[in-house]
């Protein structure tokens, strides 16, 4: 019984991770400008990574694996927003964005 639960859990986590990465890839192509593409490139991927690493931790359960998984997720969570921020800011200041896609822009100087 617990073997089935284990298998189902593994399948759900790995498939969720894969689906997130797939969606990120599709979003990267479909979204129209730099700033919206950044969302697709940096975000669902973190959830995907969380799912896959959680699965690794469940399958090889030991203190070493769990702490390593926590370290991986924390650092991914800390660095991805920074990367997104730097690219986003560079794109904004060099005007690599489509202003017609914004309904409000409160950063533009009046």
């Amino acid at each position: 019984m617990s073997a089935i639960v284990h298998d189902v859990l593994t399948a759900v986590l790995v498939l969720a991770g894969a689906a997130m990465c797939l969606a990120a890839g599709i979003g990267l192509i479909r979204f129209p400008d730099v700033l919206s593409r950044l969302h697709a490139a940096t975000k669902p991927q973190i959830f995907g990574l969380m799912a896959v690493t959680a699965d690794v931790a469940i399958n090889n359960f030991s203190v070493g694996t769990v702490t390593l998984v926590v370290a991986i997720v924390v650092f991914q969570a800390l660095t991805a927003p920074m990367a997104a921020h730097l690219v986003g800011r560079a794109a904004y200041t060099t005007e690599h964005l489509r202003a017609d896609l914004l309904i409000v822009d409160e950063l533009r100087a009046p």
Binding site: A19, M20, A23, A24, I26, G27, R30, F31, P32, D33, L35, S36, H39, A40, K43, P44, I46, F47, G48, Y92, L101, L102, I103, V104, D105, E106, L107, R108
Partner: peptide, 22 residues
Amino acid sequence: ASIEVSWLAVKPRLVTSNAILK
């Protein structure tokens, strides 16, 4: 939010409408 953004990426007839908020 990951599920929302993923759905947005794959949903047919995508209308992008973003905002920069202060």
